[in-house]
Structure formats: structure tokens, C-alpha cells
């Protein structure tokens, strides 16, 4: 689960609050760029609860359908920074895949906007 290049809190930072302990003191995802509406989903339907830490297993159970990073954070009642680290671990180790929100350009696709408009009209 560890990719080796995480930044750690130094010892002088004082006692770690639980969320930080959960991420082993790391404060930012090692590799993946996750933002609040990045969608994540578990790759497999079965969750390996024996070898995985409970937090990881819980995320995999939750993410059997695509959820945004913000939703995972809200459901687990964990701060975004912590959830992003846990999710990066799961992505790096192949348990999850993610889909970044569209953003190649500042200008959203016309068809996408039309689909959003139609969707809101149907509400």
C-alpha cells in the first residue's frame, strides 16, 4: 500500500490526531490527482477484508458504484485530505480506478452542457 515517496510529519509536530494516524502521517496523495468531484469506483465486487485495513475495506464496500471523492469523505465522515490519501493508496495498488472530472480546457463541451440542461429540465 505504500509507494515510498510520501511526506511525513516530523516527530516534533506533536501527537497525531486519528485521521492523520490513519494515513500514517501523510498529508497529500503520493501520486494521483484527486479533486472533490473525481469519481472513484472499486475494481472488484468482493472486498478482501482479511489483508486490508478496515478503512480501506470500508471504502471499497462503499464504492461499488461510482462516487465522488467528496461523497466518500462525507459518508465516512473523514476530512477530504485524509480520504484523498486513502483513495490514492487504493488506486495505486489497483483496487480502485478513478475518473477525473472533465477539464482539458476551460470551455465545457457543448453536448455536455446540453445534457446538463436537459437533465435539470427533467427534474
Amino acid at each position: 500500500m505504500m509507494s515510498g515517496d510520501e511526506s511525513w510529519f516530523d516527530e516534533a509536530a506533536g501527537p497525531l490526531v486519528r485521521p492523520y494516524a490513519m494515513t500514517r502521517g501523510r498529508t497529500r496523495p503520493a501520486s494521483n490527482k484527486l479533486d472533490m468531484i473525481t469519481l472513484v469506483v472499486a475494481v472488484r465486487a468482493d472486498v478482501d477484508t482479511v489483508t486490508l485495513d478496515p478503512e480501506y475495506a470500508e471504502i471499497l464496500r462503499l464504492c461499488q458504484r461510482p462516487l465522488s471523492v467528496a461523497e466518500v469523505s462525507a459518508q465516512l465522515d473523514l476530512p477530504l485530505v485524509v480520504v484523498k490519501v486513502l483513495l490514492s493508496d487504493l488506486i495505486d495498488s489497483g483496487y480502485m480506478i478513478f475518473r477525473p472530472p472533465m477539464r482539458a480546457t476551460r470551455v465545457p463541451d457543448k453536448n455536455l452542457l446540453q445534457a446538463v440542461l436537459d437533465g435539470v429540465r427533467r427534474l
Binding site: 468531484i37 473525481t38 469519481l39 472499486a42 475494481v43 461510482p66 465522488s68 480506478i97 475518473r99 472533465m102
Partner: peptide, 8 residues
């Protein structure tokens, strides 16, 4: 799995 949803 196919994660073909877009979030805005």
C-alpha cells in the same frame, strides 16, 4: 469496470 460517468 467501465467508469464512463462524467461529473460536473
Amino acid at each position: 469496470p467501465n467508469l464512463n460517468a462524467t461529473a460536473v
